[in-house]
Amino acid sequence: MAQNRIRKILKHVRNVYFLVGICLGLVVFATTSGKKQNLHVFIQPTFGKQALTLETQAYRSTQGDTVFIDVFRFYISNLQILYRDGKTFSIPNSYYLIDASDTASCHLQLSSLPLGAIAGLSFHIGVDSAKSVSGAHAGDLDLSKGMYWSWNSGYINAKLEGRSPSCLSHKQQFEFHVGGYAHPNNSLRKAIVMLPVNTSAEATSRTLQLQADVSVWFAKRSLREQAGIMIPGKAAMALADEYKHMFRLQNDLYEK
């Protein structure tokens, strides 16, 4: 009697597991069967059109300064894929620290994006205020990455350091640390990079090569007059307004 009942219950349990299995299968099927595309974004640090060489290579700015670049790092966040049909797809929780001294950090691999012809990319340069006021985070936002001000909380959105004979500062160094998340000194900036209108190809896998051109940082400033920015404020915001134009599409490679 009791045994019978147990057997009945067990049978129920087995049925439940069977159903759960089917459901799981369906979910897996649904997520893998809809076709997706993969996007590889390569952000290449350059000076003008030349790939950037840190420390040893002298470059000449449009203002006539000779510069060596030692550190070039910036955050990209809130990455969105723009499609030809006007739709957008936001990469969830996207915060990337791009570091010229770490090639791997310059390659973003985005898999399983919705199909469709990509028209461009939109992203923020820097870290938004929500992440700036909510404590210690992981991954590229980890405070050990050295992109955070310790005495006055907030991420450094972008950092450029180097040397120039034009600098009147100690050891002829220049340091631009741009940050500030709070009104009225918010230096978070949006950048949009569009593909040429005639490339409408849909692809299953695509590589977009962008250049992040350091020379743009110097286009309007003479290092003799200004060799550093270390705090949020007007100067930081002005520089952010300039460097948000440093991104350029260099190459678009795709497979149908």
């Binding site: 700036s132 006021v133 909510s134 404590g135 210690a136 405070l143 050990s144 050295g146 955070y148 310790s150 005495w151 006055n152 909380s153 907030g154």
Partner: peptide
């Protein structure tokens, strides 16, 4: 100047006249 307790310890750790580390 510090907006969250979790990021506070960064200040003494990295202050050159306190713990002077990273």
């Amino acid at each position: 100047g510090i907006n969250h307790i979790e990021v506070q310890p960064l200040a003494p750790i990295e202050n050159p006249v306190e713990m002077n580390s990273r």
